[in-house]
Design a protein around this nucleic acid. Structure first.
Length: 244
DNA sequence: ACTCGGATTCTCT
DNA sequence: GAGAATCCGAGTA
Protein backbone atom coordinates (compact mmCIF):
# COMPACT_ATOMS: atom_id res chain seq x y z
CA UNK A 1 0.00 0.00 0.00
CA UNK A 2 1.07 3.56 -0.58
CA UNK A 3 0.98 6.38 1.93
CA UNK A 4 -1.67 9.04 2.35
CA UNK A 5 -4.17 9.01 -0.51
CA UNK A 6 -3.88 11.99 -2.81
CA UNK A 7 -6.68 14.51 -2.74
CA UNK A 8 -9.32 13.74 -5.30
CA UNK A 9 -9.52 16.30 -8.08
CA UNK A 10 -12.63 16.41 -10.16
CA UNK A 11 -12.50 17.59 -13.74
CA UNK A 12 -14.76 20.24 -15.14
CA UNK A 13 -17.59 18.35 -16.71
CA UNK A 14 -17.65 19.84 -20.17
CA UNK A 15 -14.48 21.78 -20.74
CA UNK A 16 -13.96 21.81 -24.53
CA UNK A 17 -10.24 22.56 -24.55
CA UNK A 18 -9.73 19.75 -22.06
CA UNK A 19 -11.61 17.20 -24.11
CA UNK A 20 -10.12 18.40 -27.39
CA UNK A 21 -6.52 19.29 -26.69
CA UNK A 22 -5.71 17.46 -23.50
CA UNK A 23 -5.24 18.76 -20.02
CA UNK A 24 -2.50 21.36 -19.73
CA UNK A 25 -0.47 20.04 -16.84
CA UNK A 26 1.13 23.41 -16.18
CA UNK A 27 -2.15 24.47 -14.65
CA UNK A 28 -3.03 21.26 -12.83
CA UNK A 29 -1.11 19.86 -9.91
CA UNK A 30 -2.23 16.31 -10.35
CA UNK A 31 -4.10 14.06 -12.67
CA UNK A 32 -7.82 13.60 -12.06
CA UNK A 33 -9.02 11.25 -9.35
CA UNK A 34 -7.08 9.10 -6.92
CA UNK A 35 -4.15 6.87 -7.81
CA UNK A 36 -4.99 3.18 -7.46
CA UNK A 37 -2.70 1.45 -4.93
CA UNK A 38 -0.71 -1.64 -5.86
CA UNK A 39 -2.92 -3.76 -3.61
CA UNK A 40 -5.77 -3.14 -6.03
CA UNK A 41 -3.89 -5.19 -8.65
CA UNK A 42 -2.41 -7.88 -6.42
CA UNK A 43 -5.24 -10.34 -7.01
CA UNK A 44 -6.29 -12.84 -9.69
CA UNK A 45 -7.04 -11.25 -13.08
CA UNK A 46 -10.60 -12.53 -13.29
CA UNK A 47 -11.29 -10.54 -10.11
CA UNK A 48 -9.34 -7.40 -10.99
CA UNK A 49 -10.55 -7.11 -14.61
CA UNK A 50 -14.20 -6.31 -13.80
CA UNK A 51 -13.14 -3.88 -11.05
CA UNK A 52 -10.99 -2.06 -13.58
CA UNK A 53 -14.07 -0.98 -15.51
CA UNK A 54 -14.92 2.67 -14.92
CA UNK A 55 -11.39 3.54 -13.79
CA UNK A 56 -9.26 6.04 -15.71
CA UNK A 57 -6.13 5.20 -17.67
CA UNK A 58 -4.09 8.41 -17.68
CA UNK A 59 -0.98 9.12 -19.73
CA UNK A 60 1.06 12.25 -19.08
CA UNK A 61 2.98 13.03 -22.26
CA UNK A 62 4.33 16.10 -23.97
CA UNK A 63 3.12 18.34 -21.15
CA UNK A 64 -0.41 17.10 -21.66
CA UNK A 65 -2.74 14.52 -20.25
CA UNK A 66 -4.42 11.88 -22.37
CA UNK A 67 -6.98 9.93 -20.40
CA UNK A 68 -9.86 7.58 -20.96
CA UNK A 69 -12.30 5.55 -18.95
CA UNK A 70 -11.72 1.79 -19.13
CA UNK A 71 -14.87 0.26 -20.59
CA UNK A 72 -13.56 -3.16 -21.65
CA UNK A 73 -10.88 -5.52 -20.32
CA UNK A 74 -9.94 -9.19 -20.51
CA UNK A 75 -8.31 -11.52 -18.00
CA UNK A 76 -5.33 -13.74 -18.89
CA UNK A 77 -4.29 -16.31 -16.33
CA UNK A 78 -0.82 -17.36 -15.22
CA UNK A 79 0.56 -20.92 -15.30
CA UNK A 80 -0.27 -21.61 -11.64
CA UNK A 81 -3.95 -21.92 -12.52
CA UNK A 82 -5.93 -25.10 -12.92
CA UNK A 83 -7.24 -25.40 -15.52
CA UNK A 84 -4.46 -23.54 -17.36
CA UNK A 85 -5.07 -20.67 -19.77
CA UNK A 86 -3.31 -21.58 -23.04
CA UNK A 87 -4.36 -18.25 -24.57
CA UNK A 88 -2.16 -16.36 -22.10
CA UNK A 89 1.38 -15.31 -22.99
CA UNK A 90 2.52 -16.42 -19.55
CA UNK A 91 1.00 -19.87 -19.61
CA UNK A 92 4.28 -21.69 -20.38
CA UNK A 93 6.28 -19.74 -17.81
CA UNK A 94 8.60 -16.73 -17.96
CA UNK A 95 10.27 -15.66 -21.24
CA UNK A 96 12.17 -12.50 -22.15
CA UNK A 97 8.98 -11.02 -23.57
CA UNK A 98 6.58 -11.73 -20.71
CA UNK A 99 8.88 -11.35 -17.70
CA UNK A 100 6.97 -8.27 -16.47
CA UNK A 101 3.99 -10.52 -15.80
CA UNK A 102 5.97 -12.48 -13.20
CA UNK A 103 7.05 -9.34 -11.37
CA UNK A 104 5.06 -7.21 -8.92
CA UNK A 105 1.46 -6.26 -9.69
CA UNK A 106 0.42 -2.98 -11.25
CA UNK A 107 3.04 -2.79 -14.00
CA UNK A 108 2.44 -2.24 -17.72
CA UNK A 109 2.99 -5.19 -20.04
CA UNK A 110 3.10 -3.79 -23.58
CA UNK A 111 3.83 -6.13 -26.46
CA UNK A 112 3.95 -5.88 -30.24
CA UNK A 113 1.45 -7.75 -32.38
CA UNK A 114 1.20 -8.40 -36.14
CA UNK A 115 4.33 -6.39 -36.77
CA UNK A 116 2.47 -3.11 -36.62
CA UNK A 117 0.48 -2.75 -33.41
CA UNK A 118 0.82 -2.80 -29.64
CA UNK A 119 -1.42 -4.12 -26.87
CA UNK A 120 -1.32 -3.00 -23.27
CA UNK A 121 -1.88 -5.13 -20.19
CA UNK A 122 -1.61 -4.56 -16.46
CA UNK A 123 0.18 -7.21 -14.41
CA UNK A 124 -1.59 -8.60 -11.38
CA UNK A 125 -1.24 -11.30 -8.70
CA UNK A 126 1.51 -11.44 -6.08
CA UNK A 127 5.14 -11.13 -7.19
CA UNK A 128 6.40 -14.38 -8.68
CA UNK A 129 2.96 -15.28 -9.93
CA UNK A 130 1.75 -14.23 -13.39
CA UNK A 131 -1.58 -12.87 -14.51
CA UNK A 132 -2.77 -9.79 -16.35
CA UNK A 133 -5.63 -7.75 -17.72
CA UNK A 134 -5.65 -6.71 -21.38
CA UNK A 135 -7.10 -3.22 -21.80
CA UNK A 136 -9.37 -3.44 -24.81
CA UNK A 137 -11.23 -0.12 -24.94
CA UNK A 138 -11.41 3.36 -23.44
CA UNK A 139 -13.99 6.09 -23.57
CA UNK A 140 -11.96 9.30 -24.09
CA UNK A 141 -12.07 11.70 -21.14
CA UNK A 142 -9.19 14.09 -21.78
CA UNK A 143 -7.25 14.85 -24.95
CA UNK A 144 -9.62 13.45 -27.56
CA UNK A 145 -8.21 15.84 -30.16
CA UNK A 146 -4.67 14.60 -29.57
CA UNK A 147 -5.89 11.01 -29.59
CA UNK A 148 -7.42 11.60 -33.02
CA UNK A 149 -4.11 13.01 -34.26
CA UNK A 150 -2.26 10.02 -32.84
CA UNK A 151 -4.68 7.77 -34.68
CA UNK A 152 -4.34 9.61 -37.98
CA UNK A 153 -7.92 10.86 -37.81
CA UNK A 154 -9.51 14.28 -38.14
CA UNK A 155 -9.80 16.28 -34.90
CA UNK A 156 -13.54 15.81 -34.69
CA UNK A 157 -13.50 12.05 -35.20
CA UNK A 158 -16.17 10.08 -33.31
CA UNK A 159 -15.13 8.85 -29.85
CA UNK A 160 -15.83 5.29 -30.91
CA UNK A 161 -12.94 5.40 -33.40
CA UNK A 162 -10.33 6.64 -30.94
CA UNK A 163 -9.63 3.89 -28.42
CA UNK A 164 -12.08 1.05 -29.11
CA UNK A 165 -9.81 -1.96 -29.56
CA UNK A 166 -6.55 -2.85 -27.78
CA UNK A 167 -4.21 -1.51 -30.45
CA UNK A 168 -6.32 1.55 -31.17
CA UNK A 169 -6.09 2.29 -27.46
CA UNK A 170 -2.29 2.17 -27.56
CA UNK A 171 -2.21 4.31 -30.68
CA UNK A 172 -4.54 6.92 -29.17
CA UNK A 173 -2.50 7.25 -25.98
CA UNK A 174 0.85 6.89 -27.73
CA UNK A 175 1.84 3.73 -25.87
CA UNK A 176 4.73 1.62 -27.19
CA UNK A 177 6.65 -1.35 -25.94
CA UNK A 178 9.96 0.51 -25.99
CA UNK A 179 8.74 3.40 -23.88
CA UNK A 180 6.06 1.90 -21.68
CA UNK A 181 6.64 -1.81 -21.12
CA UNK A 182 7.49 -2.39 -17.47
CA UNK A 183 6.31 1.00 -16.16
CA UNK A 184 4.97 0.99 -12.62
CA UNK A 185 1.38 2.21 -12.87
CA UNK A 186 1.05 2.58 -9.11
CA UNK A 187 3.98 4.98 -8.77
CA UNK A 188 2.84 8.57 -8.06
CA UNK A 189 5.66 9.77 -10.33
CA UNK A 190 4.74 7.50 -13.24
CA UNK A 191 3.58 9.15 -16.48
CA UNK A 192 1.15 6.26 -16.90
CA UNK A 193 -1.35 5.57 -14.14
CA UNK A 194 -4.72 4.06 -13.34
CA UNK A 195 -6.92 6.37 -11.30
CA UNK A 196 -10.32 6.32 -9.64
CA UNK A 197 -12.47 9.41 -10.08
CA UNK A 198 -15.45 7.94 -8.28
CA UNK A 199 -17.27 6.72 -11.37
CA UNK A 200 -19.67 4.06 -10.13
CA UNK A 201 -20.10 0.75 -11.94
CA UNK A 202 -22.81 -1.62 -10.83
CA UNK A 203 -23.38 -3.92 -13.80
CA UNK A 204 -20.75 -5.69 -15.91
CA UNK A 205 -21.18 -7.68 -19.11
CA UNK A 206 -19.20 -10.94 -19.15
CA UNK A 207 -18.40 -12.72 -22.42
CA UNK A 208 -15.78 -14.88 -24.10
CA UNK A 209 -12.52 -13.19 -25.05
CA UNK A 210 -12.05 -11.72 -28.51
CA UNK A 211 -9.48 -13.05 -30.97
CA UNK A 212 -8.32 -16.03 -28.94
CA UNK A 213 -8.47 -19.55 -30.32
CA UNK A 214 -7.56 -21.54 -27.23
CA UNK A 215 -9.85 -21.63 -24.22
CA UNK A 216 -12.14 -19.68 -26.52
CA UNK A 217 -15.27 -20.25 -24.47
CA UNK A 218 -14.10 -19.05 -21.09
CA UNK A 219 -15.99 -16.01 -19.75
CA UNK A 220 -13.00 -13.72 -19.18
CA UNK A 221 -13.96 -10.58 -21.10
CA UNK A 222 -15.61 -7.77 -19.14
CA UNK A 223 -17.31 -4.65 -20.47
CA UNK A 224 -19.64 -1.84 -19.47
CA UNK A 225 -23.06 -2.81 -20.85
CA UNK A 226 -24.28 -0.48 -23.57
CA UNK A 227 -21.19 1.73 -23.64
CA UNK A 228 -20.62 3.00 -27.16
CA UNK A 229 -16.84 2.66 -26.98
CA UNK A 230 -16.78 -1.07 -26.26
CA UNK A 231 -15.09 -2.97 -29.12
CA UNK A 232 -16.07 -6.19 -30.83
CA UNK A 233 -19.24 -7.42 -32.51
CA UNK A 234 -22.55 -6.62 -30.92
CA UNK A 235 -23.50 -10.21 -31.59
CA UNK A 236 -21.04 -11.31 -28.93
CA UNK A 237 -23.38 -11.94 -26.04
CA UNK A 238 -22.89 -12.85 -22.44
CA UNK A 239 -24.48 -12.41 -19.08
CA UNK A 240 -24.60 -9.33 -16.89
CA UNK A 241 -23.32 -9.61 -13.35
CA UNK A 242 -23.57 -7.27 -10.41
CA UNK A 243 -20.26 -6.05 -9.09
CA UNK A 244 -19.59 -7.19 -5.52
C1' DA B 1 18.80 -21.81 -38.25
C1' DC B 2 14.04 -22.21 -39.68
C1' DT B 3 9.06 -22.09 -39.43
C1' DC B 4 4.73 -20.57 -37.83
C1' DG B 5 1.29 -17.62 -36.63
C1' DG B 6 -0.50 -14.07 -33.70
C1' DA B 7 -4.85 -11.05 -27.24
C1' DT B 8 -5.32 -6.47 -34.77
C1' DT B 9 -6.86 -3.13 -37.97
C1' DC B 10 -8.05 -1.32 -42.34
C1' DT B 11 -9.84 -1.69 -46.93
C1' DC B 12 -12.44 -3.59 -50.34
C1' DT B 13 -16.36 -6.52 -51.94
C1' DG C 1 -17.21 -11.14 -44.64
C1' DA C 2 -12.62 -11.84 -46.62
C1' DG C 3 -7.79 -10.69 -47.40
C1' DA C 4 -3.61 -8.06 -46.80
C1' DA C 5 -0.15 -5.78 -44.15
C1' DT C 6 4.23 -6.99 -41.66
C1' DC C 7 7.62 -8.26 -37.66
C1' DC C 8 9.39 -10.99 -34.18
C1' DG C 9 8.74 -14.21 -30.24
C1' DA C 10 8.56 -18.88 -29.29
C1' DG C 11 8.88 -23.65 -30.45
C1' DT C 12 11.28 -27.17 -32.98
C1' DA C 13 15.54 -29.21 -35.09
Amino acid sequence: MLGAPEPALSLPKACPELVEGGLDLETWETMPGRLLPRAFFAEPPEQVAPRLLGKLLAHRTGGRLLAGRIVEAEAYLGPHNDPPDPAAHAHRGPTPRNRVLFGPAGHAYVYAIYGRYFCMNISCEAEGRAGCMLLRALEPVAGAGQMALNRGLAPGAPAKLLASGPSRLCQALGLTRLRHNGLDLADPASPLQVRDDGFAVSEVLVTARIGVHEAADRPLRFALPGNKCVSGPKSLTGECILLG
